[in-house]
Write a protein that binds this DNA or RNA. Structure first.
Lengths: 238, 238
DNA sequence: TCAAAAGTGTTATCATTACACCCATGG
DNA sequence: CCATGGGTGTAATGATAACACTTTTGA
């Protein structure tokens, strides 16, 4: 059943860059091994063609689930890649999405169109199909930028977590050696978005205070800060 | 000459949100009056269908020029809008671009497909075609965010400008009443990206120092700051 | 009692904010 | 000489960075 148009149309796909954090110590990306040509056998980002009746976001979530079994993630639009030549099949424009998830909460399973599914450490990626290396680079840059001004990190930790875990998470995503413990804690605590919820037990050192993230307080903070920002003007943070 | 595909394809368009600053006092947006259905006669963002051989960015620049006569602008990808139903003709996905230009440098002229072209103040926009109001809202939010950490404002001023002009520009784009003069100056000067280049003449008040933007110094600053940032870690600016 | 990680005190420095004030020019 | 914008002084407050130190646990 062919579809005919008066003018030629690029094909439209979506791709997903799913970052996962592995015991808060290593940043990984979810890849599939392609089951069809082009690039059959190569590793690639999960993704595929957009259906006519779905939103771009639904398409991304659908393809993600179909190819990897991963669901229930908050994805965000990253960028649209459309150079002629990025796909050997012809003109294909791809809208990329990204997300950050707790790796343990999201078991993967190989599925349609994919010969395999696996998490790869961001610094040990295999050779990838299409321009997916570029897409990943853009996503990683965006992830770091976002982490600096939004507390996305909290979603990756268990309900209750220690400040050391949180700090490790930041170090991992930002790719830095070590943040100063004192200053990290001061800054985080001063924000006032954490609740104390008991202490660690059964560890061979001083037990840590456990915290949970208080979404209410965070939303409130956002509103206040926004008012402030309007008044203050510029920041030039770089 | 019809084009036939095995599966249906959405159509792909680009749209341009061009912000212009009018003597640094009012923020405007470039709109065209549509010459064809759908929405014939309505005002809309300049834009149109992507050709098979051009990049998305070229498509945006081409359509912008064809419809408004505006050229030589630095556009940046904003977001891709793809809800089914955003275009009455059927499924149309649009990649939006945005730019900020000096209004006086960019004379407009009505052209193909457009019955009219004009700059509209952002707070006096007419009713727009498609979901273009939403696109503009997203663009304006992005523009403000960007202005806070990148000196995009400088491109809108004459080669030599006064600090008061610069301040006014910031106030306009951010949409705030009035920034504190003392603090604005301190902050800008402390960045060290301005060069003194003579003084004003012929004004009925104390003549202002003229400055130019030093791109070299700015690039250097960027590099230094980036190193710094890697070391420091988080910011949580909101 | 020791290793390991949690957690705190403190200080110097820097940036931000808020106000009040002075300066140079043309009309 | 005065209205008009240009431009500066300064002090209180708050944030950041750096470093050293104390605490609590299980083994």
């Amino acid at each position: 059943m062919p579809y005919t148009y008066e003018y030629p149309r690029p094909a439209l796909t979506v791709d997903c860059v799913i970052f996962g954090l592995d015991e808060s110590t290593q940043l990984k990306i979810l890849l599939i091994q392609r089951g069809h040509d082009p690039f059959k056998g190569s590793w690639a980002l999960p993704g595929g063609f957009v259906d006519m009746a779905e939103t771009l976001e639904s398409a991304a979530l659908r393809e993600l689930f179909e190819e990897t079994g991963v669901k229930d993630v908050f994805i965000e639009q990253l960028y649209t890649f459309g150079s002629p030549g990025r796909d050997p099949r012809g003109r294909v424009v791809s809208v990329a999405y990204y997300a950050l998830v707790n790796l343990e909460d999201h078991p993967v399973e190989s599925n349609s169109d994919a010969e395999g599914v696996a998490w790869f450490a961001t610094d040990e990626l295999p050779k990838l199909a299409f321009d997916h290396e570029e897409i990943i680079a853009v996503a990683q840059k965006r992830l770091r930028a976002k982490l600096r001004y939004q507390p996305i990190g909290f979603e990756l930790l268990p309900e209750k977590f220690t400040l050391s875990q949180l700090q490790k998470l930041y170090e991992t995503i930002l790719g830095v050696e070590e943040l100063n413990k004192r200053n990290f804690r001061t800054k985080i605590q001063r924000m006032g978005v954490l609740n104390e919820v008991g202490v660690q037990t059964g560890v061979a050192h001083r037990p840590a205070q456990l915290y949970s993230f208080d979404k209410e307080k965070y939303e409130q903070l956002l509103r206040d800060k926004y008012q402030d920002m309007l008044k203050r003007g510029l920041d030039f943070e770089i």
